[in-house]
């Protein structure tokens, strides 16, 4: 499709975002919108779930919302 591949949902990309600042699941989903990656909603959810489990980021409650982040 013409719009696919603009953004890639990779471990490296997730790692980069979480190293910059704490993010909620919704923040991460915004970075990997389906219209930018060309992935389906299900594929996006599954990939992010697997990557987050593998990266095992720190968790922090900010304004009552769970945020993930990675230390340098």
């Amino acid at each position: 499709t013409p719009n696919s591949g603009e953004v890639q949902l990779t471990e490296e990309a997730v790692r980069r975002y979480l190293s910059r600042k704490p993010m909620t699941t919704k923040d991460l989903l915004k970075k990997f919108q389906t219209k930018r990656t060309g992935l389906s909603s299900d594929a996006t959810v599954n990939a992010l779930a697997q990557l987050l489990k593998r990266l095992d980021p720190e968790r922090k409650l900010i304004a009552d919302k769970m945020h993930f982040f990675l230390k340098e």
């Binding site: 909620t24 989903l29 996006t44 959810v45 779930a49 987050l52 489990k53 968790r59």
Partner: peptide, 20 residues
Amino acid sequence: SSSEADEMAAALEAELNDFM
């Protein structure tokens, strides 16, 4: 749409249930 984003966030959080 924002409702699709909400659904995806809910699905992702469900996948991460044990983890979170």
